[in-house]
């Protein structure tokens, strides 16, 4: 337990010491909130769908958690380049504990980022339908964060350089995010888009966050929780197995 804790703490310390990372990771969602929220707000309203900012905020929170969690995999590659990875690979601690300590640390920072976006959203006019339910949203963010940090540790264990890692971000994670319904409603979209959204695990987290913060859901809470649990188990298994074969 001490080992998991100290590896978790390492990630937390590195996060709070890197002001540029905090600001950078807040900047992008803020840009989305302002540019899209204000930019498309009137179109959305004209279409008779109500307040776009309300709709958008859970999506942007999911975005923040998703990409902050992916960043954890990049940290593994940085550790490899700086040589620190070797140190963690010869210690008498099981690969599982090493992976989970770091992934929990990465997940914690991702949830902090997501929560910061929540508070920023409040400042620009977002209102959750029920304050208690925002705590449930926190649980959903944690589940997403741990699933994605596990996934990105798996990726970081076999992708050797940053370019390879960025490619996975560009060609897998970005498309999944854009097609998840985070930015626009999935009603009245072409069938192919709807099908992709329905097999896309990110859609269910976005939907669950909307359920917790707005009280509306597309797939239903049970489907959301089921999909999120499956995603968490599958990605943690993937991360654990890949990390077991990690090479320096």
């Amino acid at each position: 337990m001490r080992t998991v804790y100290i590896l978790w703490l390492r990630q937390i310390k590195r996060y709070f010491r890197s002001r540029s990372r905090i600001v950078g990771a807040i900047g992008q969602p803020l840009l989305f909130l302002l540019a899209l929220g204000y930019g498309l707000g009137s179109v959305y309203k004209a279409a008779g769908r109500g307040n776009y900012l309300q709709f958008l905020v859970p999506g942007i929170m999911a975005q923040t958690v998703l990409f902050s969690s992916m960043f954890y995999g990049a940290m593994i590659i940085i550790d490899r380049q700086f040589g620190f990875l070797k140190e963690t690979l010869v210690v008498p601690v099981s690969r599982f504990k090493i992976m989970i300590g770091g992934a929990l640390g990465g997940a914690t920072t991702a949830v902090i980022q997501g929560s910061l976006v929540f508070f920023i959203s409040l400042a620009i006019g977002f209102r959750p339908h029920n304050w208690i339910m925002t705590l449930v949203a926190l649980v959903f963010m944690c589940a997403l964060a741990l699933a994605i940090t596990s996934f990105s540790s798996g990726i970081g264990s076999f992708v050797q350089d940053m370019q390879g890692f960025q490619a996975i971000n560009q060609f897998l994670v970005f498309p999944l995010y854009f097609l998840s319904g985070a930015l626009y409603p999935l009603n009245n979209v072409p069938t192919w888009l709807r099908i992709i959204a329905e097999i896309n695990p990110i859609s269910y987290t976005v939907d669950a966050l909307r359920w917790a913060m707005l009280g509306t859901t597309k797939f239903g809470l049970r489907a959301d929780i089921l999909a999120m649990s499956i995603t968490l188990v599958v990605l943690m298994t993937f991360g654990t197995i890949r990390f077991r074969h990690i090479r320096d």
Binding site: L7, R10, R14, D79, G83, E87, P92
Partner: peptide, 26 residues
């Protein structure tokens, strides 16, 4: 082991590097 190539976490302090190592080695 002391490696030939660098293997420190340069974003931590000297003490923190030692502490991390000590805890990992029980």
């Amino acid at each position: 082991i002391v490696f030939q190539d660098p293997s420190l976490d340069t974003d931590l302090t000297a003490y923190e590097n030692m502490e991390l190592h000590g805890i990992m080695y029980g």
